[in-house]
């Protein structure tokens, strides 16, 4: 049976998620045993238009990008959005509530209007997707697990539980004990708590956990003197779209954030 043909695409992104694939090092050889990579500009020259699985990195933020991602959806059997830009809007969404012409002007100068951009969209807001791999960057182990699922027919399970689940089981000293704000309790895990276990706070790059209780964490961090609105400010980096949808954290936030 022929190996599935796999292609990688970049939109508004840093291509760091695709770099994560290359960083799998020796596991890359095993990856190549089970799939055939036909398009991956960070790695190879080969560039084909016929593929079974498309891994799409980046937000969709221009009309040209919308056309291109629609073409990909047409060509592919499966479309996987990879990384926070593709799944949540990522850091690109920081410009969400600003005037676009103003932003274009600041970035491109006088010729700003030559570079039309619109509201930052996730891939799923433009085309239907089959899977998403969250994170900034996505987790290499999770990417390999998704490929394993595609090869064996096992259903890919997306974690919705908090970062604390993995952090606590690693025996990490909690960020909150050190007087540092951390979004771990309300952020989606699956990253092995890579940031808090190395001494950095969780900034929620994989989105919100199931039943994330935003108001409770916000109240707690403020009462600990970690700063007025610290939770909301931290959420703005990666969860702007989701956070805006909840309008300042009203309500219990129950229900699947996806």
């Amino acid at each position: 049976m022929p190996r599935p043909r796999v292609a990688f695409f970049s939109f508004t992104s840093c291509e760091g998620c695709q770099l994560t694939v290359l960083e799998q090092e020796t596991k890359l050889l095993e990856l190549l045993e089970v799939v055939e990579i036909v398009r991956f500009r960070e790695a190879i020259d080969r560039r084909e238009d016929r593929f079974d699985v498309a891994f799409v990195e980046g937000s969709i933020s221009t009309p040209e990008e919308e056309d291109r991602v629609r073409w990909i959806r047409n060509q592919a059997g499966l479309v996987v959005a990879i990384g926070a830009c593709a799944t949540l809007g990522g850091v690109n969404a920081i410009r969400e509530d600003r005037d676009h012409l103003d932003v274009q002007g600041r970035v491109y100068g006088e010729k700003g209007e030559w570079y039309p951009a619109h509201q930052v969209k996730t891939v799923a807001e433009v085309v239907s997707i089959d899977f998403e791999l969250h994170g900034c960057p996505m987790a290499g182990a999770e990417f390999l697990d998704l490929v394993s699922c595609l090869i064996t027919g096992r259903k890919f399970r997306q974690k919705g539980t908090s970062v604390c689940v993995e952090c606590v089981l690693r025996g990490t000293v909690c960020q909150l004990w050190k007087g540092r704000p951390c979004l771990g309790p309300i952020s989606r895990g699956g990253c092995q708590a890579v940031c808090p276990s190395q001494g950095g706070s969780c900034i929620g790059c994989r989105g919100l956990a199931t039943e994330a209780n935003l108001p409770a964490l916000a109240d707690q961090l403020e009462s600990e003197g970690l700063g007025d609105g610290v939770t909301e400010r931290m959420l703005e980096l990666f969860n702007r779209k989701e956070f805006a949808a909840r309008e300042g954290g009203q309500g219990d936030g129950k229900g699947d954030p996806a």
């Binding site: 908090s162 604390c164 689940v165 309790p185 309300i186 956990a209 199931t210 039943e211 209780n213 707690q220």
Partner: peptide, 13 residues
């Protein structure tokens, strides 16, 4: 439970 974050730390430790 109103302020419970459902982080799971309690049961895992």
């Amino acid at each position: 439970a109103e302020r419970c974050l459902s982080c799971g730390a309690c049961v895992l430790l």
